[in-house]
Each structure stands twice: as structure tokens, then as C-alpha cells.
Design a protein around this nucleic acid. Structure first.
Lengths: 240, 240
DNA sequence: TCAACGGTTTTTGTATACAAGAGAGGCGCG
DNA sequence: CGCGCCTCTCTTGTATACAAAAACCGTTGA
């Protein structure tokens, strides 16, 4: 192939990549997530093509994939823009996320196998370790695995996929609010309740615990952005 | 057979289409839904290009969009195939659909406006009319509008989008099972209960009614395919 | 001075050309 | 006669070329 070496400069992983477009999509996802391309940014095809040393074709394909996943918006004959999610929409997404996770928890109570129970506990302990060490990044990753263990435990592969996808979509925002004072400790306590409920098979309790666990995140995020009210809004400049 | 001279020959709508790729996607969605391309079919790019009188480029873009929505699967260097959903996966999807709709109902109880109440009742009456006339197709469309009224009533735009998207994905299967004996009448009765609960603001009841309304569909579908067990499977003949 | 108009330029969308991997089939070998 | 390898073809994936639409910008007229 060509010099793909430069192209994953910003991605942590670097696979051979059967199709360049797919690798490009992942790279762009990452770059958008970390803020290299802030919301509202126009993603110029030729600039991206020159940056990644490929032609416009795979760039376009990657942008189309991103638009399907909702990360960018393609306006006909106008180009691709990093989608601005806006606080109201974000709250809506957290609301849905809460319900998906609650559903996972409910199903997990009835369907989890013994080995899945172990995996859940292991993930929980990893969270404890990260929290004890006071490392937000480590906690963030352990937290992802914790939730993923519940998704898997739902015994519903489609549900797990959807949950994972939305979790991924909300990732940058969840990450932000982890910095809120004592959020890590509270999160861990909530995890403990969730684990207890699931292991006890109490589906009502597990469902409720997980739902509020997520809703709290949404609310905390809401508080958080309220603090930065002047910073959160100017992105809306497109309306002119 | 090949003389589908105009490309939207099989689509009901015909817009000018800013991008051909998007129109192509809709056409292919429709064609797959109605069974023109059964599950497992390989979607050859050049064949599609000649059929639609365009080059491979917009075809590829349409296929990528379809793969993102899950309708087709793109295997690297192998081509695009109409995705075989398989009964287990389908049941999983119905399970998620039930939860999404239940959530819509719950939220709708608290958030629906007066005009949305009217819209819901109007949609319900349209269903009654179609059922009275004994027209499954008309009922199918009225039913879609009925459910959409609830999605909208949830006051959660993201949720509504997701619900609509999944409903669309399940459309062909729901349509199938409408033919089951007396399903239309039962469906209507369930609708009545849902409307009553929502108008009364009884979120628990509405949630439960809508959830079982969908789950019943899934079960009926399961029964239905069980009947055709010999017909449902042969698509897996790749090994042959 | 401002607004509307027309040409120019940039950028998207599509078509075509080219490269490379995957599969089929034939050939040789065991 | 069966198995494996090699070649050849067919298809996908990418690059480039071209068309058309939209943005840009200066001009012109009121």
C-alpha cells in the first residue's frame, strides 16, 4: 500500500486495514472525539485527502460512514460538518442511554451465567482499584469494561451493540463529567449497588439502580455545562 | 426483467434527489424490504450500476450507507450482501423495540400536549377504519402513524429517531405477521388500551401495554416462522 | 453606501481509469 | 484418481478526470 504510517499518527491502534476508508473512519472518529475537529468544523475533502495521503474517494466513504453514525452531518453540495450535538439533544441521548442500560441490567439479572458474574465482579474490582489510585483515566476505561460486562450479560446481542454504540457516542461527554468533584467515588458506590442487585437477581432494583446511575451522569453533565454557560454556547454561530 | 429503465421504477416516491446515492439508498432499502433482493443476495456493484444507469461510485456510497444501517453487510474485497437477520437476532431486535416503545409511552404520558393527544386519537381512529374495512395494507400504514404519534409524544427527539429507525428495520417482518389470523383485531384492541392509558396519564399501564403489544408481535412472528420452518432456513445454503 | 447582479473560483458529486486481492479452473504431481 | 499450486479472470478498492452547483468577489446601478 501507500504510506499509511502517517495517517494513523493520531490513532492509538494501527491495523493493516483491509479498506482504507474504514481505518480513516476510525481515525476521524478519534480525532473528533478528542477535539481535534471541534463541533461545527467543516471537514474539507481535499484537506483530509492531503493529510492522509489518499484520494478523495476513501475520504468520502469514511465521511458517509460517519454521517450514518451521526457524528458528522453531510449537507448536500455543502460538505461534511462535525455535528453539533447541543445540550438538549445530549440530555435526550442520556435519557435513552439510561433506559438501554436499565434494560440490560434487568435482563442480566435473569440471564447472566456464572462466568459472566465473575467477569462483572472482576470489572467492578478494577474500577475500585482505579478509584483507589485516584486515576480518572484508568477509572474511565475500567468503567467502560464494567458496563460492557452488563451489556454482554443481557444475553441480547443486538441490545449490547446498541448500548455500546451509544456509549461510544457519549464517551467524550461522560469523560468530561468524571472530573466533577467526587463523581468517581459516587460512581463506584452506585456500581456496588448495581453489582449487588444483579448478583441477587433483583431485577427491579438493578434496573432502577442502573437507570439512575446514568441519569445522574446526565444531570451532572447538565450542571457542568451550566457552569460554563458562556463557553458552551458560542459554537451555535452557524445560525448567524 | 432488466428493463427497469427509470431508476425509481420500484420506489413509490420520486424526488429530484440532490445526491443520487441517497436516492439509491432509499430505492435499495425498498427493494430489499419487498424481497426483490432476498437475504444473502450478493449486491454486485456493476449490475446495480447498469440497472440504475449510473457509475459504480454512487452505488458504492449507497451500499456503505446501507451497511451502516445494518441492512447489508460489506465483506472486504468480497462485496455487499443483503444481511440475513436470523430468527434469534430478530427476536432480540423485537425485545429492544418493545423497550423503546415502552419508554416512549411512559414519557408520552407526562409530556404529550393537547394537540398531540388529538393526533394520537386521530391515528387510532384511522387504524379502526382500516381494520373495519379489512385492509391490511391500509392498517399497516395507519399503524405506523399511530406509533409515530407516540414517538413524537415522548418529547425526546433522539428516542423518536431511534424508534423510527428500528421500526423501519423491522417493517418487513411486522408486515408479514399482520396476516396472522385475527392479528389486526387484537392489535386494535391493544391500541385502544394504550390510548386510554396515555390519555389517562397512567405511565405504568401505558408502558406495560405498549411493551406487551410489541412483544406479542415478536412472539407471533416467532410462531409464524416456526410454521414455515422448512421455508425459513434454506437461505443458509452457502455451504451447498 | 448598500444591494443586486454576473462572472470566477472553489468544492462537491459523478464518471472513468487503473491496481490489487479473491475465486475459479486447469494443470501437474503424488 | 485426488490434491495442491499456478494462472487467469472477475470484482472490489482507489486514483484521477470531469461536470455542475454553490460560494466568493468585484462591479454596477440606484
Amino acid at each position: 500500500m501507500h504510506k499509511l504510517s502517517s495517517m494513523d499518527a493520531s490513532t492509538p491502534s494501527h491495523k493493516p486495514a483491509a479498506r482504507a476508508a474504514q481505518a480513516l473512519r476510525e481515525t476521524l472518529e478519534y480525532d473528533i472525539a478528542v477535539g481535534l475537529y471541534p463541533p461545527g468544523t467543516r471537514l474539507d475533502e481535499v484537506s483530509l485527502a492531503t493529510r492522509f495521503q489518499v484520494s478523495r474517494t476513501p475520504i468520502r466513504e469514511a465521511l458517509i460512514e460517519l454521517s450514518a453514525s451521526g457524528l458528522v452531518e453531510i449537507r448536500p453540495r455543502r460538505g461534511a460538518f462535525v455535528r453539533e450535538i447541543g445540550i438538549p439533544r445530549l440530555i435526550e441521548m442520556f435519557e435513552v442511554m439510561a433506559e438501554l442500560e436499565a434494560m440490560c441490567a434487568r435482563l442480566a439479572c435473569r440471564r447472566m451465567t456464572a462466568s459472566e458474574h465473575e467477569a462483572l465482579q472482576a470489572a467492578h474490582e478494577a474500577c475500585e482499584a482505579a478509584a483507589a489510585a485516584g486515576e480518572p483515566d484508568a477509572y474511565f476505561h475500567a468503567n467502560e469494561k464494567f458496563h460492557d460486562a452488563i451489556y454482554r450479560g443481557s444475553g441480547n446481542g443486538y441490545l449490547a451493540e446498541q448500548a455500546r454504540s451509544l456509549q461510544n457516542r457519549l464517551k467524550p461527554y461522560r469523560r468530561l463529567q468524571l472530573r466533577v468533584r467526587n463523581r468517581m467515588g459516587n460512581s463506584l458506590a452506585e456500581h456496588q449497588q448495581i453489582v449487588d442487585a444483579i448478583l441477587a437477581g433483583d431485577d427491579r432494583k438493578a434496573e432502577g439502580a442502573l437507570r439512575s446511575h446514568i441519569l445522574i451522569q446526565g444531570e451532572r453533565f447538565n450542571d457542568f455545562v451550566a457552569t460554563l454557560s458562556t463557553v458552551g454556547e458560542p459554537a451555535r454561530s452557524r445560525a448567524g
